[in-house]
Simulated assay, not measured.
Amino acid sequence: MDLGPECPNCHEPWLRPTNLAGRYRCVYCLHRFELRSVCPNCGEHSTIVRMSSTATTQCNACGDSMLLPI
């Protein structure tokens, strides 16, 4: 059963988009994240679809999370 994307903080599958484009919140640990267009790990730029419920939150180059805590 797929419960949703995994939270980068607590690693539980409860990451949900908020009403602000590109923002996510974990309903388990309540941490907030912002989806970035530049990977914080490798610096690769990626086109992001902020309004999509199926937005990719992983870097295509290195596989690391494109989410930064806010």
Rank of each mutant, 00 (worst) to 15 (best):
residue 43 G to Q: 06
residue 34 E to I: 02
residue 38 V to R: 14
residue 54 T to D: 13
residue 46 S to K: 10
residue 37 S to R: 08
residue 53 S to Y: 03
residue 54 T to I: 08
residue 49 V to M: 09
residue 36 R to D: 00
residue 4 G to V: 01
residue 29 C to L: 03
residue 20 L to T: 13
residue 48 I to G: 01
residue 30 L to W: 11
residue 66 M to A: 01
residue 18 T to Q: 13
residue 51 M to R: 14
residue 41 N to F: 09
residue 7 C to D: 08
residue 21 A to L: 14
residue 64 D to Q: 14
residue 24 Y to M: 04
residue 67 L to N: 05
residue 1 M to F: 02
residue 58 Q to P: 00
residue 22 G to L: 06
residue 1 M to Q: 06
residue 8 P to D: 05
residue 21 A to P: 09
residue 22 G to S: 05
residue 59 C to R: 07
residue 68 L to P: 00
residue 27 V to M: 11
residue 23 R to L: 12
residue 17 P to Y: 03
residue 6 E to F: 13
residue 29 C to T: 02
residue 28 Y to V: 00
residue 56 T to Y: 01
residue 62 C to I: 02
residue 46 S to W: 07
residue 30 L to G: 00
residue 25 R to A: 09
residue 27 V to K: 10
residue 12 E to I: 03
residue 23 R to H: 13
residue 3 L to N: 09
residue 66 M to I: 01
residue 48 I to V: 15
residue 42 C to A: 06
residue 56 T to D: 11
residue 43 G to Y: 06
residue 47 T to I: 11
residue 3 L to H: 11
residue 24 Y to W: 15
residue 20 L to A: 12
residue 19 N to I: 08
residue 46 S to N: 14
residue 60 N to E: 15
residue 70 I to M: 09
residue 48 I to F: 00
residue 61 A to R: 15
residue 11 H to A: 04
residue 10 C to A: 10
residue 53 S to E: 08
residue 46 S to T: 14
residue 6 E to Q: 12
residue 53 S to P: 02
residue 62 C to S: 04
residue 67 L to E: 04
residue 63 G to A: 07
